[in-house]
């Protein structure tokens, strides 16, 4: 069962047992809380930034991590330009890879 890595080992069963223990603890905490939840009341409604969300609203995938995307804007722009979709560029980069491989192999 154990996965020996040279410095130590990792056993998913131990991890599972640990996870089960943590889950048990969480359940214990949760069960001690106040039970004010009532189905069918306002508590069921989804909220978006404090406003009641309109019917059928969904935070689509492109809207997640916009901050991250904003911060990395220059890098991402450069990377998108790198993937230009032009076949000549594809071949160019392949030849570059080939040249690098040849140089590394031959010059060492």
């Amino acid at each position: 069962m154990r996965l020996v890595t040279g410095q130590g080992y990792w056993s998913p069963l131990v991890w599972l047992a640990l996870a089960a223990g943590v889950a048990l603890l969480a359940w214990a905490f949760w069960s001690r809380g106040r039970r004010t939840y009532k189905a069918g009341t306002e508590q069921d409604q989804p909220f978006l930034s404090g406003e009641r969300a309109p019917e059928g609203a969904h935070v689509g995938a492109p809207h997640l991590y916009w901050g991250f995307a904003q911060a990395l804007q220059p890098v991402m722009d450069w990377l998108r330009a790198f993937h230009s979709g032009f076949l000549g560029d594809y071949v160019t980069w392949m030849v570059v890879l080939l040249a690098v491989a040849l140089l590394v192999v031959v010059l060492t």
């Binding site: 993937h83 570059v96 040849l102 590394v104 192999v105």
Partner: peptide
């Protein structure tokens, strides 16, 4: 020898393209 090394380089280049290593990965997506 030198020729062996060039052959190795060509094999490396061709196969690395085929496995999709950057910067020759663009066909893969």
């Amino acid at each position: 020898s030198q020729l062996d090394k060039i052959a190795l380089g060509l094999l490396l280049g061709g196969l690395l393209m085929k496995v999709g290593a950057v910067p020759a990965h663009m066909w893969a997506p």
